[in-house]
Amino acid sequence: MARAISAPVKRERVTRAALTTWIRRIAFYVLLLVAWQMFANTGIIPTYNLPGPIDVVGSLVNLFQSGQLVPAIGATMERLVIGYALSLVIGVILGLLIGCFRTVEDTVGSLVLGLQALPSVCWLPLGILWFGLNDQAIIFVVAMGAIFSITLGVNEGIKNTPPVYLKAARNLGARGLALSVQVILPAALPAIFSGLKQGWTFAWRSLMAGELIYFTVSLGNLLQQGRDNLDPAQVMAVMVVIIAISVVIENLIFSPVERRMRERRGLGSQRA
């Protein structure tokens, strides 16, 4: 087949394009770091306000060696995973109910749309009132941050399922739960996945906000500690760690899954 023949050529072209992209990218960051360091060295802004990248790296190494960084990352990730898992379960169930039952859509659906508009940090005071200033309150906020995005993604996916798939499936004997799990859910997967991705960014943001307020072992707390110690290098070092975690989650979990899903269906890959 033509497809098979053209594949290697195409792949080679893709790798070359990717290589060019990476060269440009690395050059940009090297230049940025050099410029930043040079600017910091001029002393126009005192280093206690704007440290150079070397100071930031030093602070990062310090945090790591003092044994603060790794437990903080661990604690933060634990909250993220628990909160996100909760929102995943609740969000998918809620989305399925709204997507499948007209009554639920007319009632709960409108409520979800309203709650989605609320910035998730706004749940924090309520969380603290209900659970106290502890892990549970933060997990609550993380979950609330992601639930509605996921719900809406699932609902949208269901609404956009081509009716012909449902007809074909019913005709081949699919009913009830099997129809939902084997047809509606996979058909809705691309839209669900957008919901999941949006949900994760919201969860991540709410988590950081929560951790800034709640004093415990966490990345948010390390940020706060940097401020208390008038140490912008530490603040920046922790920011770098937070960015790195986001990038890793995005590129190691979400992107590969999404790419695979799109390739299977011949939807073409979206340029990252």
Binding site: V164, Y165, K167, A168, N171, P186, A187, M261, R264, R265
Partner: peptide
């Protein structure tokens, strides 16, 4: 009774 459609209606996943 199985219906076949013009657009085949295969499941892309």
């Amino acid at each position: 009774r199985v219906l076949l459609f013009q657009e085949a209606a295969l499941f892309p996943w």
